[in-house]
Amino acid sequence: MTRSLRTLAVWAVLGALAAAFLLAGAALDFDYVIPRRLTRLAAIVIGGICIAWSSIAFQTITENRILTPAIMGYEAIYLLLQALLVFALGAGGPMLLGANGNFLLSVAVLLAYSLAIHAWLFRGGRNNVYFLLLAGLVMTIAISALTEVIQYSISPGEFALLQGYSLASFNRAEPAQLAIAAAILTLVSVPVIRSLRTFDVVSLGRDQAISLGVDYQRFVRLHLGLIALLVAISTSLIGPTAFMGIFVANGAYVLARDHRHRSILSMGCVIAIALFLCAQLLVEHVFNYRTTVGILINLSCGLFFLALLVRRSERA
């Protein structure tokens, strides 16, 4: 199959999934069902793009294909923030700020965390993936432990509410948040699209990229900042997605069959959106809401991650 034909087939599948999601069992109810589903579809598209872009960019910069930005502790920070809100303000805490207030606060806190951790990690030109990983892992464990301490001191009702934040879902996003998220995403996409060819050079490795005239330090700082912004949007909009980025990025490398980021990034977006749509369709029409999107996605991507690790260790 030629490249363009395969691209066409992939987009056709995505279109069919989106149509099925919008119309299945809706009896063409344009007053309630379909507008509600359009909102969820928008959340899926924005979340999918953020996850695909952030994971692929992160993997290119760290020259490692089994990492996601989640390793840096972003999701743990988000959950800690929600737990603190519940603890300080009661069950209504996260809602007290209004959905938009909570969304903007989450984005701001995640961004501040990312700037702090980057300023600390890259102090003095240090740029070591293993150090980054270790620091991220330790931060994640420490922050999660703190979150647990808070969870033990709140009521069961509040705990159940908090539990809801720890799984991905498309139901919490409101149109106003989606509009803000879309606006931020558009702004982020400008430098990302302008750097697509530089990303290709960076995928040759740090040394080769510098030798070919990439201002490497500036590039890494800019794009780690943008990655933080993308993760902040997707986490505040749909919740933590843990392994999903690894699945999306590696699927994109295989399906795009092209090393250029132009192809890899667009394929990654398609895969992320398709995966969300499949999970949401299954939840709505097969499991009748007896399971959640977050569980389905973590299960399928977790299995994929294991398979990837097994395959890599066999090859090594």
Partner: peptide, 15 residues
């Protein structure tokens, strides 16, 4: 960086 890369090229052991 870009000017430097037009004057000196470095090749490390092929990764």
């Amino acid at each position: 960086p870009a000017d430097f890369a037009r004057r000196i090229a470095t090749l490390r052991q092929s990764p």
